[in-house]
């Protein structure tokens, strides 16, 4: 069974351990500004929302890539950027309506959540289980996808 990230903002305390873990895993430094998961703080509602790629089925980023640099990891189902192939054209960054694939000027490539090869470090780091990695069926992934289709897709089934 393929798994996916399940995010429960109600449990998030905003500690940013996920951002630290993600950035360390991918860059070797603790640097939340390089994290692929970001916690947004809605101060006046008392609400914190961890936010990252949903690995959506439509994969705008992957479809938009002109050089086939974004591929599906067959084990995790993650849409993964092949850094050696990415030319840094940034087309994917404006194609993704979620804004979860970003250009990193210092390396000249784009980056996005890759589910850490099936062991997402944000999940391990989260002290409150606000981010979990669970069987895809449990996550309301379909709900997310249908939301995505409704709200953002260029295409809707007529």
């Amino acid at each position: 069974m393929q798994k996916s990230l399940h995010i429960d903002p109600g449990k998030c305390t905003g500690c940013l351990q996920c951002e630290m873990a993600c950035s360390y895993e991918h860059t070797g430094a603790i640097n939340p500004s390089k994290s692929r998961i970001k916690v947004f703080d809605f101060e006046h509602e008392g609400r914190k929302v961890p936010y990252t790629c949903t690995q959506c089925a439509d994969a705008w980023c992957m479809n938009a890539c002109p050089v086939d640099a974004i591929v599906i990891d067959l084990i995790t189902g993650a849409k993964v950027v092949k850094e050696s192939t990415c030319v840094g054209c940034k087309v994917c960054t404006i194609a993704c309506p979620f804004g979860t694939i970003n250009y990193m000027a210092d390396v000249g490539k784009v980056q996005k959540c890759d589910l850490c090869d099936g062991d997402p470090k944000c999940v391990t780091a989260c002290p409150t289980a606000a981010i979990t990695y669970v069987d895809a069926d449990w996550t309301g992934l379909d709900r997310m996808r249908s939301w995505a289709a409704k709200a953002n897709t260029a295409a809707v089934a007529a």
Binding site: K38, T93, P97, G99, T100, M104, N152, A154
Partner: peptide, 15 residues
């Protein structure tokens, strides 16, 4: 460069 795609999301979704 951060989350710029969300601009598309907002516009396309006519949010």
């Amino acid at each position: 460069t951060e989350h710029v795609g969300a601009l598309r999301g907002l516009i396309q979704g006519k949010t």
